[in-house]
Design a protein around this nucleic acid. Structure first.
Lengths: 239, 239
DNA sequence: AGGCACTAAGTACGGTGTTTACGCTGCCAC
DNA sequence: GTGGCAGCGTAAACACCGTACTTAGTGCCT
């Protein structure tokens, strides 16, 4: 029945990777997803097409549909494979908040490596094994919080979303710096100078004021991330 | 010179809306963007195609390219028009933190009305008039914070990103509820029960533990939002 | 050995954003 | 006034996308 196979609503992990009859497949879902991730990392998510993936794998385009019912599901595989890049400590950590912070920093770095990740997450995707592993570990860190299950899930979503968005933001800045060769200071100043034009119109008094105020101290992006992250954790756990 | 006109890197607002020679145009950028937003709100961002917009406007498809060099720029217009939906107080508020919180709640509601918004924001778009107005007002609220310009801009990005992501998350839940007719409680429990299958495998001890712990108290999504938001603001402003 | 589930591959279809070309409108300089 | 021409509207066509369908070949099972 092609209806269930094509149905994009149910996760791909509920569909069998392959049957046991017939010739052995020359590829696998993880191999295909890895190729897609490689393309997305180097050339952007827009370059990820079925034809392109097949070409990189040296196979026919339509052969991919023997492994994946639709491109949507391939994207799910990509996201879950990226979620599998987390590194969890072997023994349970004693400091839960520090462990959560470490998890968030890893998430930021993952999103920085794979800038297409937040763009793909526009709606909560079905959970694959990598995601489940992540949630399980995170739930363990929240075990002693006294929160109910729904609140725990929401905290995970919030912190994960924050980390991913921040990482993607940094990735965009990294990319721009690599393309144009400008420094980080110039980059930080860029939006401000862009606003200067608007300020010149006289309609935005606060924009003008920002130029007259001296800069007391400069916080790096990582400091900013940690500051907000800690407060987010404390806010969730009550601190 | 078609090169500069087609260049998607520079913002559309730097390109003149129309020349002064020739016949008067039958439409405008804002009208086209409004039509696109209407389609995106009711049928999803995927339904927003050049042909569809033109059909809704009762014009030829290619006529749109007289107003916008590429679809990418049309998306910029959509995002900025949504950013123009903020409602700012007439007189400057005395309580800055409360005003910031109000701004964030508005952002959440805007994203809830326009769920396609975060999906479109995957990279920091060029700032249009609506965005500049928003930043100007926000900067006014941060005037007395003693932060440097870069830090202020980053705080705006973080709080705005948080609000938008939260609103989009709620919108996705709203949509699912409308489609399936399930209650909010059922919905909150859904991911947990989905994890139950994984828990049954025995590989995820923390997943099992979550089912044995009784739920002490239920926080609504709005309470959760406010809690995290307040902490974010305090974290940014210190205190 | 034969049947058949399965993989691999090519062709084709409907859809997209966009290019190119051309006709029409109406302001501006003369 | 009146021609010239910038700018608007439209149609046909191009390149590319995801993928349905068809055909051929492979190798486990009865």
């Amino acid at each position: 029945m092609a209806g269930t196979w094509t149905d994009t609503h149910l996760p791909i992990w509920s569909l069998p990777e392959r049957g046991e009859r017939g010739p052995k497949p020359r590829h696998s879902r993880t191999e295909i997803a890895a190729a897609a991730i490689r393309i997305a990392d180097t050339e952007g998510i827009a370059a990820v097409t079925m034809r392109r993936i097949a070409a990189d794998l040296g196979t026919g385009t339509m052969s991919l549909y023997n492994y994946v019912p639709a491109k949507e599901h391939l994207v799910q595989l990509m996201a879950d494979q990226a979620a599998g890049e987390y590194d969890y400590p072997r023994s349970p950590p004693q400091d839960s908040r520090a462990a959560i912070a470490d998890l968030a920093r890893q998430g930021r770095d993952i999103a920085r490596r794979h800038p297409w990740l937040p763009a793909v997450m526009h709606r909560p995707p079905p959970m694959g094994p990598g995601t489940v592993r992540y949630i399980d570990y995170f739930l363990g860190l929240l075990a002693g919080s006294g929160l109910d299950a729904a609140a725990k899930m929401e905290i995970i979503a919030i912190i994960n979303g924050f980390a991913l968005m921040y990482g993607a933001m940094q990735a965009a800045l990294d990319d721009e710096r690599a393309r144009t060769g400008i420094t980080e200071q110039q980059q930080q100043a860029a939006p401000v100078t862009a606003l200067a034009q608007a300020a010149a119109s006289g309609n935005y008094p606060n924009l003008v004021a920002i130029f007259t105020t001296p800069a007391p101290r400069l916080r790096t992006a990582d400091e900013m991330f940690d500051s907000c992250l800690i407060r987010l954790i404390d806010g969730a756990l009550g601190g």
